[in-house]
């Protein structure tokens, strides 16, 4: 990532609330770099996704190279490098959910939202035209007893059927 690229992006800085949260975080670890994951979570919550400007800012705050931040961002599936919809819908499709027909739920969501499933390298593929939803498949969400499950942003929805999915989407 070259410096020119970073400069054309809108610069990023924590807002007051996140700055306070960040200051509290940094005191927890003997080295600043260790606060990487929680800091990126804060930044992503504020900026929507991790832009090069965010990476540069986080790198400055943690006193590491931008490359190290990029290294971490590309490793973890929960960090997005592309814009995502207002609601990120994560559909679990690992074995226990698959045994309870998560495929039906996924197909229903695809049809209802009129979008494909996002892949990790192409989030736009799973994002609706109005940027309201991003549909993606994820691995086990550790709720196999109430399968099939989906997560919409921070909330878990259990024992789904196409009818329940309709109800949930209508109430968002």
């Amino acid at each position: 990532m070259s410096d020119e690229l970073i400069q054309i992006e809108t610069p990023f800085a924590f807002n007051e609330e996140n700055q306070r949260a960040f200051d509290a975080l940094i005191g927890r670890y003997p080295v600043k770099e260790a606060a990487m994951l929680p800091t990126l979570h804060l930044a992503q919550r504020q900026a929507g996704y991790i832009t090069p400007a965010v990476m540069k800012y986080v790198a400055e705050q943690l006193e590491v190279s931008v490359m190290k931040v990029k290294d971490v961002v590309t490793f973890y599936p929960m960090f997005f490098e592309e814009p995502v919809g207002e609601y990120v819908i994560r559909v679990c499709h690992t074995l226990p959910c698959a045994l309870q027909d998560c495929q039906v739920v996924l197909e229903h969501l695809k049809e209802k939202l009129g979008t494909d499933v996002a892949s990790e390298t192409n989030l736009a593929k799973g994002t609706t035209a109005d940027s309201k939803f991003t549909l993606m498949k994820v691995e086990c969400l550790a709720s196999c007893d109430v399968a099939p499950v989906i997560m919409i942003n921070d909330d878990l929805y259990k024992n789904l059927t196409p009818e329940k999915v309709d109800e949930i989407l209508d109430n968002l």
């Binding site: 260790a34 990487m36 994951l37 590491v64 971490v72 490793f75 973890y76 960090f79 994820v138």
Partner: peptide, 22 residues
């Protein structure tokens, strides 16, 4: 908080992740 990687449940993977690395 982790960030969605299964391998961080392995104890040394967890330690690396806690130190702010992959």
């Amino acid at each position: 908080p982790g960030a969605g990687a299964y391998i961080c449940g392995e104890e040394t993977g967890l330690i690396e992740s806690l130190e702010g690395k992959r």
